[in-house]
Computed example of a mutant assay.
Amino acid sequence: MTTFDHAGPARPARGPSRWVALGWQLLGLLLILAVWWLLTDVLKLYPPYVFPGPKAVWTEISYGLWGSGPQDGKLLSAIGGSLRRMLTGYLIAVALGVLVGLLMGAWRPLRTTLGAYLTGIQSVPSIAFVPFAILFFGLNERAALAVVILEGFIPMALAVSGALLNVPPALRVAGRTLGAGSLSLTLRVLLPASLPNILTGLRTAWSFAWRALVGGELLIGGVASLGEQLEVGRNTANVALVLATIIIIGLIGGLFDALLRAFEGRVRRDYGLEVPQ
């Protein structure tokens, strides 16, 4: 008698789970710390004032966040000040980028002119805009905020414009067939279909804006910021403080990027663009 297999279609093979990936990342971190400790505290290849060990850097972090000492609480207030400027500038940049990106995606003359200008400006390092921002706004945090907005706005506008152009033509035809006008087609058909690619633009805008913020804060003193902590470490020859601030900058940037990446992955799975793992 013939038998039939009712198990259904074979499921695609899943890649390593997120926990396995996290385990490898933690293992890599431990390896880096071990090599760092070996070079500085065991072999002593460099004097502590040139390349301090992990313990000295951790001491600066603990002093700056919750301990007592010369940097008591200053790192914590610096993180708060930088995040406040970053979130303010980032939200403004995203709002402006989405608006301009929609206009460029809907109107070709604007896309061919302004889009080309924005692409050219994007190739300019963010630190190059800081002197102009200081001369225009003064030596204050508005100058740093302006650089953040500019560096976040450009990739966001280009991402939205490019995402709209990558929508399958069949969706445009279907929307027009159902009677959608230009505005309705953009807001109700093209924009939702572009969402996965727009979320990629959000991550890119965050990365550009975060780097621009720290670079701007290096040259704008008098405010609590991570850039100011880097400058304090340089002026006092405190390499441990410089390394501690760099580590915190990397951790904050990586954390927000991971959050945006997780949200993007969730949306892509909902759109059927990724296989759940």
Rank of each mutant, 00 (worst) to 15 (best):
L91C: 14
F256V: 12
G162N: 12
L145S: 06
V42D: 09
G97F: 14
P48T: 09
S182E: 10
G250W: 11
Y49T: 09
S161N: 12
M104P: 00
K74H: 15
V100M: 10
A133K: 03
G162T: 10
Q229K: 14
L83R: 03
S82N: 06
V100S: 06
T236A: 08
E60F: 01
I154T: 02
G175K: 01
T3A: 14
V242Y: 00
V242N: 00
L33K: 03
L251M: 14
V173G: 00
L27V: 03
A205N: 06
G53W: 06
Y49A: 11
Q122W: 09
L259F: 07
L99M: 09
A193V: 01
W66L: 13
G69Y: 12
G138H: 09
S161P: 01
G222H: 03
G80T: 04
E228L: 14
L255R: 03
L83I: 12
T204F: 08
M104L: 13
R11P: 01
R261P: 01
R108L: 12
L118H: 04
M1E: 11
K74Q: 15
N140T: 07
A180Y: 13
L226Q: 04
T186S: 04
E274Q: 12
L183R: 10
E141S: 10
L65N: 04
S182H: 06
P192C: 05
A116Q: 12
W24L: 10
V100E: 11
F4D: 05
L145N: 06
L230S: 02
A116H: 09
N197A: 15
V57S: 03
L191W: 05
K74R: 15
A106I: 05
S17Y: 11
W210Q: 00
G101A: 02
